[in-house]
């Protein structure tokens, strides 16, 4: 069974503004400084999929609609 990933991030549209990073209540978002996207920014990345609760707050504050959020499957909640 593949490991559940609660967020897809459209890193090509991310401008690295960090609004989601400050808003995330679980502190599981950070800029990926190893990457520069086509717009010239370090895009955001999910640092710990297990700690993400799919609360959608990142998507709510994102000006560039980079997040697709998935519900954590019941079986996965241990």
């Amino acid at each position: 069974m593949t490991h559940f990933v609660p967020l897809d991030i459209a890193t090509d549209r991310c401008k690295g503004c960090e609004l989601c990073i400050g808003a995330c209540p679980h502190h599981v978002l950070a800029l990926d400084e190893s990457v520069v996207n086509a717009l010239g920014y370090h895009p955001v990345t999910l640092t710990d999929p297990d700690e993400c609760t799919s609360c959608v707050i990142c998507a709510r504050v994102c000006p560039d609609t980079v997040f697709t959020v998935y519900a954590r499957p019941k079986a996965d909640v241990s």
Binding site: V5, V56, P63, V69, A71
Partner: peptide
Amino acid sequence: NRRVIYRRPDALQDKSTHYCPGCGHGI
């Protein structure tokens, strides 16, 4: 097999905006 609970709205064109990083216009 993942259930989507939030995704980009259909009414938006599929393109990056010209707005500066963090600009509220995008929101």
